[in-house]
Nucleic acid binder design. Structure first.
Lengths: 235, 235
DNA sequence: CGCTTGTTTGACCAGACTCAAAGGTTGTGG
DNA sequence: CCACAACCTTTGAGTCTGGTCAAACAAGCG
């Protein structure tokens, strides 16, 4: 719930230019001169697991670039049920809808310790008006989000629980290197795959017994890529 | 499969300015002077039901504004299975990914007789570079698509078949006025709701018997809004 | 008229949901 | 340091929805 600014010094332009993940983020294509157009502070904001960057329905003029950690986007229905519609990782942007003056469509919650750059809408608006170099990056972000949404629709919302879990794990492996990935709590697994927590638990346990995954502590699992691919293939 | 240009005269700017659905489409905010920047022909292209505007994997430099009819966006998985991830209606834009030089992510197929304006990518690129008035519209389109994708995930991919069908019908009613909406063939209903054709058929038949819908010919049904809302509410 | 395409329905079965209870962990306060 | 609470996970038993396979029926078309 609480955000903690790291000091209140203007963390903007100087940091952006030398940003460690510059080539991953929204400002990847900006040139030296463009940075002088940034006239509002871009703060680094940290969130602890379980804290939310923003809540569905909020209207605030900020978007967030994810520097570290993973964020879940949760969409709620009028009846109170909910579904995780996307996971955001390093380099992704959360809250693009703020650029349109729309309230946030989801609640964005940290799954792990998260480090973000909080960008005021006005900064992007100004850069957009002055330089075309941001447009492409913005469209790429929209496109990525949409592609991910469509993939969830086809991969994680169809087929048996086994199949969905296998696809989820493979998707998470793609996002990291190595065979280790983060496996969220069962309730979140359920909310991602549109199955119940119990089915998620049973299926995870089954995968464990079948040697497809092995716990390595702290919600991390080592995955057997080939095995998981077999599960997907044979289905 | 085949596109048919209506003549080969340049159908662009003059028509755009006086477009009947100008306020709905991508060029809504353009001014008189902006139209002079359009240097390539924008053709009206018609598609018969079952014909495709484009196929997944194609790389062509066109996006399409939908003037009449409904289009389904179908995404395919490596294993050959597929899912309908979105329906596009009047005013919507298909093939936005062409702006990024990406191959089309879906196959876009007409469900009814469809009339489109086929816009070369270069036209949008040029307008984008010269005027900021297109940006907002473009972002709105991306945002709409994303919102629709997320809604499908939460509304049409969770809950029982009854619930999903009720939500689908209510969604389609929102898109039209009156209580009549188009109900696609059962296989497409199944591909939208991630259920089998048989379950789709059974559920439609059940709704018909319960008086929630009534056939009025040619794949059109009159819907009982309150009844459908009850189905959604009681679930 | 026969063919294709779409729809409906039945019977059976399996996977997933529900309800319920029992272990594990973690963190907190005594 | 221990005990308890809160939270998460696992497992079981019973039920029911939806998948599968199969057949019959209807409509459109060459």
């Amino acid at each position: 719930m609480k955000e903690r600014e790291i000091g209140d010094a203007w963390k903007g332009p100087p940091q952006c230019r030398s940003c460690g993940i510059r080539d991953l983020v929204l400002f990847a294509d900006l040139r030296q001169t463009d940075f002088s157009l940034i006239h509002l502070p871009i703060d680094e904001v940290r969130f602890k697991p379980g804290e939310s960057l923003y809540h569905a329905g909020d209207s605030k003029p900020y978007l967030f670039t994810l520097r570290e950690g993973t964020v879940k986007l949760v969409q709620y229905l009028p009846d109170g049920s909910h579904r995780i519609v996307r996971l955001l990782r390093q380099g992704a942007v959360a809250g693009l809808e703020a650029l349109l003056g729309e309230p946030y469509a989801h609640t964005a919650t940290a799954l792990q310790p998260v480090l973000t750059c909080r960008i005021p809408r006005a900064v992007v608006d100004r850069l957009s008006a002055e330089t075309p170099r941001l447009h492409t990056q913005l469209m790429k972000r929209w496109h990525q989000s949409l592609q991910q949404a469509d993939d969830w629709l086809t991969e994680l919302s169809t087929g048996s629980a086994r199949l969905r879990l296998a696809r989820l794990l493979l998707q998470m492996l793609d996002a990291t290197d190595g065979d280790i990935c983060h496996l969220p709590i069962r309730e979140d697994v359920g909310a991602m795959l549109a199955i119940t927590m119990e089915t998620a638990s049973r299926t995870v346990a089954e995968f464990r017994r079948a040697g497809l995954i092995a716990d390595v502590g702290d919600h991390l699992v080592r995955c057997n890529r080939e095995g998981l691919e077999d599960v997907v293939a044979e289905a």
